[in-house]
């Protein structure tokens, strides 16, 4: 059996995947503009509270 480099890349991507940051993006898109804060600002706020 041979293992190609792409097998390792896929494994790395899966182990690094952070669903919490997907949630942060979705939250940012939903809250974009609220209180004068951009979507990225709200996403950052979510990520700081829940994801790191």
């Amino acid at each position: 059996m041979t293992l190609s480099l792409s097998s390792f890349t896929t494994q790395l991507e899966i182990s690094e995947y952070n669903p919490c940051l997907d949630e942060a993006i979705a939250y940012g898109e939903f809250m974009d503009g609220y209180n004068g804060i951009s979507g990225a600002g709200h996403a950052f706020d979510y990520a700081r509270t829940f994801c790191y």
Partner: peptide, 12 residues
């Protein structure tokens, strides 16, 4: 999709 958040984070 993540670029804006990533840049915002680096800036802050």
């Amino acid at each position: 999709k993540f670029e804006q958040l990533a840049e915002y984070e680096v800036n802050i």
